[in-house]
Computed example of a mutant assay.
Amino acid sequence: MPVSASRDPLDPAVSVRDRRPRRERSAAAAGPGVDVGLPRWLWLPAALGGVFVLLPLVAMVVRIHWADFPALITSHESVEALTLSLKTAVAAVVICLVLGIPMAVVLARTDFRGQSLLRSLVLLPLVLPPVVSGMALLYTFGRRGLLGHTLDVLGLSLSFTTAAVVMAQSFVALPFLVISLEGALRSAGRRYDVVAATLGARPTTVFWRVTIPLVLPGLLSGAVLAFARCLGEFGATITFAGSLEGTTRTMPIQIYLYNAGSDPDSAVALSIVLVVVAVLVIGVARVGRSAL
C-alpha cells in the first residue's frame, strides 16, 4: 500500500482551516448548531456594564412621586416642550435624510482625493462638544455671523427661532445617519447595482430600485439614531436657539430649567417621559427592521 506523506503545517498548500486547532475544526465540521461557548470571565464586566446603564434609570424611577406624576407631565410647560421636541426632531430627521443619503452614497461608492478628510469633517459633530456646535452655528447663521448678516438683510432671521432648533438638531444628528448608511452600503457591495446597470437601468433607477431597498434596514437604523439624538439635543440648541417658551424650549432644556430651579420632581418626571419615548422609538425601529 502507498504510504501517504505527512503534510507540513507550514506548507502554503495547507488551507487555513487545516491549520486550526483540532477542537475548532471539529466544531466547524459539526455545523452551525454547535455552541462554541464564551469565556466565563466575560460575564462579570458584561453584568457590570448592564448595572452601570440601568442603575441610574432605576434611581430616577425610585425618586419620582408616582401620585404626582400625571400632574407633573401634563403641565402646560411640559406638554409644550414635549410637543416642540417631537416636531423639531421629525423635521430634523427629514433634513438628515435629504442631505445624509447622498453624502453616504458619495462616501461609500466613490473614490477621490481628500475623501478621508471629507469623511472626518462630516463626522466631526460626533466628537465636538454640543456647545461648540452651537457656537459654530451661531457664528455662521447668527445676525452677525458669516452668512447671518446677509440673511438678516434679506429678512431671514434664524437664530433664536424654531428653525434654529431644527438646524441645531440636524447638525449634531446628521453624522449618525451618514455613518450608519455608509456602513450598510459598503456591506451590501455593488454587484446588484452592476447587474441592474448591465440590464440597461439608468443610474437613478438603480439608486431608487436597487441600492436603497438593499440598505433599507441600515437606513432605518440611521434615521432612528438621528431621531434619538435630536430628542436629546441640549447644548447646541440652547447656544444657537436659546430658551424661549413655545419657540425654542425643547424637552431637554425644560428639564434643565426645572432641575436648576426649585422643581426637581418635574425634572425627574420629564426625564422619565423622555426615556420612555426613546425606548418606544428604538422598539418600533427594531420591529420595522425585522419586518424588512
Rank of each mutant, 00 (worst) to 15 (best):
R191H: 10
A164S: 14
T162L: 10
T204H: 13
E182L: 07
L128F: 12
T140H: 06
L244C: 07
R190W: 00
L177Y: 03
I253S: 02
R202T: 12
T250A: 02
F141W: 11
T211W: 08
L257R: 01
F141R: 01
T248S: 14
A228Y: 00
T250N: 02
L154G: 09
Y192I: 03
I179A: 13
L199Y: 07
R190H: 08
E245I: 01
L216I: 05
V224D: 05
G134L: 11
T239W: 03
V132Q: 06
T204F: 15
L257K: 07
E182N: 14
V195C: 01
L181H: 09
G235A: 04
I238A: 03
P217I: 00
V206L: 09
A188M: 06
T250F: 01
G222N: 12
P130N: 11
V166Q: 02
V165Q: 02
G200C: 09
L128Q: 03
T211L: 13
T248L: 01
A226N: 01
S187L: 15
G148W: 00
I179M: 14
R144S: 10
R249D: 01
D193W: 09
T248F: 05
G242F: 02
F176Q: 10
G183H: 12
R191E: 04
V166G: 10
A163P: 01
T239E: 12
G235E: 06
P252F: 01
G148N: 01
A226K: 03
R186T: 14
